[in-house]
Computed example of a mutant assay.
Amino acid sequence: MVHRVFSYGTLRQENVQQALFGRPVVTVADTLPRYRLDWLTITDPEVIATSGSDRHPILRPGSVTDVVAGAYLELDDRELAQADAYEVDAYVRAAVTLGSGTSAWVYLAAD
Rank of each mutant, 00 (worst) to 15 (best):
V28Y: 10
L40A: 01
Q17F: 09
A81N: 10
A71R: 07
L75C: 00
D30S: 04
W39S: 09
T31K: 15
L75M: 02
E74D: 11
G99W: 02
T65N: 14
L98M: 09
E87P: 02
T102P: 04
V92Y: 00
T27K: 09
D84M: 05
E87V: 03
L20E: 03
E79F: 05
A19E: 12
A71V: 10
P57N: 05
V25R: 12
D77S: 11
Y72M: 08
F21L: 10
L32H: 07
R34Q: 15
S53F: 06
A95F: 09
D38N: 14
P61D: 05
A94F: 02
D54Y: 06
A104L: 09
S63Q: 11
Y35M: 00
P33G: 11
G22M: 07
L73T: 00
T31G: 08
A29R: 15
L20F: 02
A95N: 12
V67H: 07
A69I: 11
A94Y: 02
A19T: 04
D66H: 12
E87L: 08
H56R: 04
W105A: 00
D89H: 12
G70S: 05
P61Y: 06
Y91A: 08
R23V: 03
A81W: 00
D54A: 15
L40T: 05
I48D: 02
F21Y: 01
V88E: 11
G70A: 09
P57D: 01
Y91V: 11
R23A: 15
Y86L: 07
A49V: 06
V25H: 02
L32R: 07
L59V: 04
T43M: 07
L59P: 05
S103H: 13
T27C: 08
G22Y: 11
G52S: 09
G101F: 08
F21T: 06
G99T: 08
L40D: 03
E87C: 04
Y107A: 02
S100D: 13
L73A: 13
S51M: 02
L37E: 15
A83Q: 01
L98A: 09
R36M: 14
D38A: 13
L73P: 00
V68P: 01
G62M: 08
P61M: 04
V64D: 08
D89S: 15
D30I: 07
T27R: 12
V106L: 06
L37N: 05
S103C: 08
F21R: 01
Q18Y: 01
A104W: 05
I42N: 13
R60T: 03
V26L: 10
G52Y: 01
T97Q: 07
V68T: 02
R36G: 06
